[in-house]
Simulated scan of single mutants.
Amino acid sequence: MSDTHIEHITELSETQAAAVRALEETCRNYHACPDFPWEDYTDVWVLWSEDTSDPAAVLAAIASPDEVECIAMTAPELRRRGFFTELLDAAADFFDDTDLILPAKSDDAETRLALEAAGAEKLSTEYRMEKKLTAGTEDASSSPVKGPGVPEETDARSEQASRAGSAGLTMAVDNDEGGTRTYTFSVSDTAEPAEYAGLCRTLQEGASACFYDFEIDEKLRGKGLGRAALSLVLEHLRSAGTHKVFLHVSGDNLPAVRLYEKAGFTVTEAMNYYLY
């Protein structure tokens, strides 16, 4: 077995960052893997082997109070030598045995086997779901969207109301200059004042929008308001020139998954998360 040593780095130099990116590209050419934002991670462990002058394996981590999110990769020709487990153990020792969370695409059998061999347990599955709103291109340069996707008739911050038929659902839209919209839903009838029903947010990314923070007030659930609210939001985004909407949802949240499927969303990626 070749000699190895592990280097813990808190800030990658340009040369080190280039080496990590080169390893990532090699791994991506070998099999599909996520594109990781290395600049967001605060601690990086690099495993060097005498078999190569380049990094043999890399693990990066970013810590929160309750857990540590990690990403890791090993050069394809150097796999099955225990390098992955060495890096996991180094990170676990540094973070004083705080739970390490690692993502892997559900169709990535090799990474799944490596995680299981290292003793990691599957924790959850997250779906990325998408819905196409128009037949236009996703290139923001050819999109009719104004700025971050604000409709022509609105200012950067505005209030806009829509109503969802017999559901009595009203939607107010608040736009900010960064492309984030907050949608607030209320229900009312002729006899009672409007009552808060829920909210959601979207973030415009060119001609696409990320849909998140969707909630319906617990006491109003089971009345079809979620479906009505989602319909209002999608129609508003469509009128603003948005071509595609995407979201992330837990695979365990079956009611939400079914709601999005009925609205025309399809699963485009499934990501498993493992606990070490």
Rank of each mutant, 00 (worst) to 15 (best):
V58R: 03
G168F: 04
T74A: 09
G178P: 00
A229T: 05
K223W: 01
I9V: 15
A270W: 02
V187W: 04
S13H: 10
A270M: 09
E67I: 14
T4D: 10
L247A: 04
V58M: 06
M129C: 06
S142D: 15
P103R: 03
S239G: 00
N272A: 11
A194Y: 09
L59Q: 08
D99K: 05
E7V: 14
L225M: 08
D89V: 15
M129G: 07
D252A: 13
S250A: 12
D174M: 08
T15R: 15
A109Y: 00
A117E: 11
L230P: 01
L225C: 06
A61S: 14
S186T: 12
V46S: 03
T125P: 01
S106D: 04
D89L: 15
L254D: 04
M129V: 10
S231H: 09
T242D: 00
Y183H: 13
W45I: 05
S231R: 11
H248W: 00
F185K: 06
W45P: 01
P34R: 08
T154D: 06
L259V: 02
A209K: 07
E195I: 12
V44C: 14
L237D: 00
E205W: 08
K223N: 07
D35T: 12
A32K: 13
A256I: 03
L102Y: 10
M171D: 00
A172R: 12
G147W: 09
R163E: 04
E153K: 14
P76W: 10
V145N: 13
E110H: 10
G241F: 02
T170P: 01
L275D: 06
I9Q: 08
P151R: 06
L47P: 02
A229E: 09
M129Q: 07
V20G: 06
E159W: 10
A172W: 11
D139M: 11
R21L: 14
D96Y: 11
L203C: 11
G147L: 08
G264C: 03
A228D: 05
T15N: 14
L115G: 02
Y276M: 11
V173A: 10
D43Q: 12
E24P: 01
S158H: 11
L12R: 07
P37G: 01
L220N: 07
P148H: 13
F211N: 02
L115D: 02
G179N: 05
L23C: 05
R79H: 11
L100V: 07
D43R: 12
L59D: 04
W48D: 02
S64K: 13
A75P: 03
L78F: 12
E7P: 04
A104W: 05
P151G: 02
L12H: 06
K122T: 01
G168N: 07
Y127N: 10
A270P: 06
A92L: 13
L232P: 01
K244T: 04
S141Y: 12
E126A: 12
D99P: 00
Q16I: 05
E177C: 01
G165W: 09
W48N: 10
D252G: 08
C27P: 02
D108Y: 13
G251N: 04
G149Y: 04
T4V: 15
P103W: 02
G82L: 08
L234T: 02
E261Q: 15
T202W: 02
E177V: 09
D107Q: 09
E195F: 09
M129L: 11
P151C: 01
A104R: 05
L247E: 01
C33W: 00
F185C: 05
D176K: 10
H31G: 03
S13A: 10
F83L: 15
S143D: 04
T74F: 07
Y30T: 10
A91E: 08
